[in-house]
């Protein structure tokens, strides 16, 4: 959770296209070994189904439309919860980064709330919202709030004061100063918070859906467990991995696009 660690660093020069496959070697090798272990009977199918069986289960669910429906429900919950929690967190981060008064008023409270694991609220949330959509949205929103808030605040607080002085000397209004100096300066930190929040978003959703839901990926996995459909359980887990990776890649792409000025993102 270290903020400094999540800053972009100077990386090795971008590798040519062929080398772009390198990150996929390890996952592919794992699947291969896994398949072999299952086919040879080294791992019993009751413990872990072969990747081919998982793929087959996925295909069946895809045909029945169940898979798409559940992915869509989970994706919708994740994005709405993320948007709500993220925008509130961002708003507080801006307010407390820019205004001493606002920071004095709310930061201590927020720091106290931050130390409560948000998943510990599940019993309370179920009592409040039942197993309604709002329960999941609330938990996701609460989960993503803090990384977004903390990193936006940190980013704004650490903008180079010399640049701010420069902006003032050259007659920038408060609005311009924010738009041209403070916000771009805080952006690398904001992105670090965004990527961290995306991880929390999936985590929260999985837990919430496994405990209290009647649709979604977590529900699908729990249902499959009831009927001992271990291939579907594994499938759900793999889908989470893929969705997590997609979300991370999307935020990285956005980062590259908006931080093209940053030495870490410049193509050689």
């Amino acid at each position: 959770m270290s903020l400094i660690d999540s800053f972009p660093r100077v990386r090795a020069p971008k590798l040519p296209r062929v080398d772009g496959l390198i990150p996929w070697i390890v996952p592919l090798a794992i699947i291969l070994v896994w398949q072999l272990a299952c086919v040879t009977g080294f791992v019993p199918a009751r413990v872990l189904p072969a990747p081919s069986d998982v793929a087959l289960a996925g295909w069946k669910l895809l045909l029945s439309g169940e898979l798409i429906k559940n992915i869509w429900v989970s994706f919708w919950r994740a994005s709405i919860g993320f948007l709500i929690g993220g925008s509130i967190g961002f708003a507080f981060g801006l307010a407390n980064g820019l205004s001493q008064l606002s920071a004095k008023l709310t930061d201590t409270t927020l720091q106290m709330v931050r130390n409560i694991p948000h998943l510990a609220l599940i019993p309370l949330v179920i009592l409040w919202f039942g197993i309604d959509e709002s329960a999941k949205l609330f938990l996701v929103a609460l989960g993503v709030f803090f990384p977004i808030y903390l990193n936006a605040l940190h980013g704004i607080r650490t903008v180079d004061p010399q640049l701010i002085e420069m902006g003032r000397i050259y007659g920038m209004t408060d609005g311009e100063l924010f738009r041209r100096v403070i916000f771009p300066g805080a952006l690398p930190s904001i992105f670090a918070g965004l990527r961290f929040a995306l991880g929390i978003m999936w985590l929260t959703l999985i837990v919430a859906e496994t405990i209290a839901a009647s649709s979604g990926l977590g529900y699908m996995a729990m249902q499959a467990r009831e009927f001992m459909l271990i291939d579907v359980v594994v499938l759900s887990i793999l889908i989470y991995a893929v969705l997590g990776k997609v979300a991370d890649s999307a935020s990285r792409a956005l980062e590259r696009l908006t931080l093209s000025w940053h030495p870490a993102f410049q193509k050689k």
Partner: peptide
């Protein structure tokens, strides 16, 4: 106008845009 020991350029603005900052209003 002042010039400091540090250039104090906006890293996220290209060179020309940095110079335009000097025009103020």
């Amino acid at each position: 106008r002042v010039m400091f020991q540090e250039p104090r350029l906006l890293p996220w603005a290209r060179v020309l845009a940095n110079v335009e900052v000097g025009l103020g209003r």
